[in-house]
Amino acid sequence: MSIQHFRVALIPFFAAFCLPVFAHPETLVKVKDAEDQLGARVGYIELDLNSGKILESFRPEERFPMMSTFKVLLCGAVLSRVDAGQEQLGRRIHYSQNDLVEYSPVTEKHLTDGMTVRELCSAAITMSDNTAANLLLTTIGGPKELTAFLHNMGDHVTRLDRWEPELNEAIPNDERDTTMPAAMATTLRKLLTGELLTLASRQQLIDWMEADKVAGPLLRSALPAGWFIADKSGAGERGSRGIIAALGPDGKPSRIVVIYTTGSQATMDERNRQIAEIGASLIKHW
């Protein structure tokens, strides 16, 4: 067993022997301040990774656009098919120029040779490549099948209805392509620590998230040296922004954090800054 596999296998073990965790309302004060600064709703939840206990939450059962955070769930569904012998990570998928959609920095470079399922998941999570996500959605049967996968996990809230990039439209009061912070946090925890996926697939999923290259201005910008984070960000229309993450000190994750916002007129930089400040408060009061 590799060191990384050992780390993920012992996530519940280490967490069980940690000192009790206590909620700190100071972080919620910052979440509410972010709402004021952005002029928009902000949803927040913080779960203990081992027990699933909610440590703090704000608007945990209000719907927010998922945006690209759905790509972690998508690759979880792909990995479940791999575990069941219905898919192979090494299978190569070929596609054409007509398949390319807006923001496809990886797939646009491989029109000639195609990409493997493993490479597509890596591109979808680490670079948020939209064509990679659409190609992977095709392998599982489309958005409705991802929703069905989530329902089978016990998540009857999260739903995907459309493809990239239309799913980022974020129309107010439109339930399409949305989740709730509580539902997303619980589902992410199941994917990373539950028995739904094999140990190898859980490790692969967290490795992809740990290698995320496009979430630097968010929670990662607030992390002290030595902290662990595996995350996936999302951005959408109407001032929408979000991030889902597993993080913790001492090089291992111990909490799940989900943050979503929508309806702001603020710039992307300002949305990023507010999420980073929430992260800084979380870490300060850990």
Results as ranks from 00 to 15, higher is better:
residue 64 F to M: 06
residue 265 Q to S: 14
residue 29 V to K: 15
residue 232 K to T: 01
residue 112 T to C: 09
residue 103 Y to D: 05
residue 169 E to P: 04
residue 226 G to A: 09
residue 54 I to H: 08
residue 57 S to F: 10
residue 227 W to E: 01
residue 58 F to E: 05
residue 210 E to P: 02
residue 28 L to S: 07
residue 33 D to L: 11
residue 228 F to R: 07
residue 68 S to Y: 01
residue 79 L to W: 03
residue 246 A to M: 13
residue 77 A to K: 11
residue 264 S to T: 12
residue 111 L to P: 08
residue 26 E to W: 09
residue 237 E to K: 15
residue 266 A to D: 12
residue 61 E to L: 12
residue 62 E to H: 08
residue 47 L to G: 02
residue 248 G to R: 04
residue 277 E to W: 07
residue 162 R to I: 02
residue 261 T to H: 07
residue 54 I to F: 11
residue 153 M to P: 01
residue 33 D to E: 13
residue 260 Y to T: 05
residue 101 V to W: 04
residue 123 A to F: 02
residue 272 N to K: 03
residue 231 D to C: 05
residue 143 P to N: 05
residue 217 P to E: 10
residue 144 K to T: 13
residue 254 S to V: 12
residue 148 A to S: 12
residue 252 K to Q: 12
residue 50 N to Q: 14
residue 217 P to I: 07
residue 158 T to V: 04
residue 36 D to L: 14
residue 54 I to Q: 08
residue 143 P to D: 01
residue 153 M to A: 11
residue 49 L to F: 10
residue 104 S to R: 03
residue 262 T to D: 07
residue 284 K to L: 12
residue 217 P to W: 06
residue 239 G to P: 02
residue 52 G to Y: 06
residue 217 P to D: 11
residue 51 S to G: 09
residue 180 M to K: 11
residue 202 R to G: 08
residue 75 C to V: 09
residue 95 Y to L: 08
residue 41 R to H: 15
residue 154 G to F: 03
residue 203 Q to C: 09
residue 118 R to Y: 12
residue 115 M to W: 00
residue 231 D to G: 05
residue 209 M to R: 00
residue 222 A to T: 12
residue 148 A to G: 12
residue 217 P to K: 13
residue 268 M to E: 07
residue 119 E to A: 09
residue 206 I to L: 11
residue 204 Q to L: 12
residue 197 L to D: 04
residue 165 P to M: 08
residue 148 A to N: 14
residue 194 G to Y: 09
residue 119 E to H: 08
residue 151 H to G: 14
residue 135 L to E: 06
residue 92 R to A: 09
residue 96 S to V: 13
residue 192 L to E: 00
residue 29 V to Q: 14
residue 200 A to E: 14
residue 63 R to Y: 08
residue 105 P to A: 05
residue 260 Y to V: 07
residue 239 G to E: 04
residue 216 G to P: 05
residue 123 A to M: 01
residue 73 L to R: 04
residue 119 E to D: 15
residue 171 I to Q: 15
residue 64 F to K: 01
residue 216 G to Y: 07
residue 109 K to Q: 15
residue 271 R to M: 14
residue 207 D to I: 11
residue 270 E to Y: 10
residue 169 E to M: 13
residue 266 A to R: 14
residue 136 L to T: 04
residue 68 S to N: 04
residue 252 K to P: 06
residue 88 Q to G: 11
residue 115 M to A: 06
residue 229 I to N: 01
residue 190 K to R: 15
residue 54 I to P: 08
residue 185 A to H: 01
residue 281 S to Y: 11
residue 221 S to G: 09
residue 226 G to W: 05
residue 124 A to K: 01
residue 262 T to I: 09
residue 214 V to S: 07
residue 98 N to V: 15
residue 215 A to G: 08
residue 109 K to M: 14
residue 242 G to R: 03
residue 195 E to L: 07
residue 60 P to Y: 08
residue 244 I to K: 01
residue 90 G to M: 13
residue 126 T to N: 07
residue 183 A to M: 11
residue 247 L to K: 03
residue 197 L to R: 06
residue 78 V to W: 00
residue 271 R to G: 08
residue 91 R to V: 05
residue 25 P to C: 10
residue 223 L to P: 02
residue 225 A to C: 11
residue 153 M to C: 11
residue 200 A to K: 15
residue 40 A to M: 08
residue 30 K to Y: 05
residue 136 L to F: 03
residue 47 L to C: 07
residue 193 T to L: 12
residue 194 G to F: 08
residue 62 E to L: 06
residue 135 L to Y: 00
residue 81 R to Q: 10
residue 157 V to G: 10
residue 245 A to H: 00
residue 106 V to A: 11
residue 248 G to C: 03
residue 163 W to R: 09
residue 27 T to E: 04
residue 280 A to T: 14
residue 82 V to S: 08
residue 118 R to W: 15
residue 84 A to W: 09
residue 255 R to A: 04
residue 67 M to C: 10
residue 91 R to H: 10
residue 68 S to V: 02
residue 260 Y to M: 13
residue 178 T to S: 10
residue 257 V to G: 02
residue 263 G to F: 05
residue 53 K to Q: 15
residue 38 L to G: 07
residue 184 M to W: 00
residue 204 Q to A: 10
residue 122 S to L: 13
residue 91 R to C: 05
residue 37 Q to W: 14
residue 254 S to I: 10
residue 96 S to F: 12
residue 229 I to G: 01
residue 246 A to D: 03
residue 100 L to R: 05
residue 35 E to W: 00
residue 58 F to N: 15
residue 172 P to D: 11
residue 93 I to M: 09
residue 209 M to H: 00
residue 62 E to I: 07
residue 159 R to Y: 06
residue 166 E to I: 10
residue 144 K to V: 11
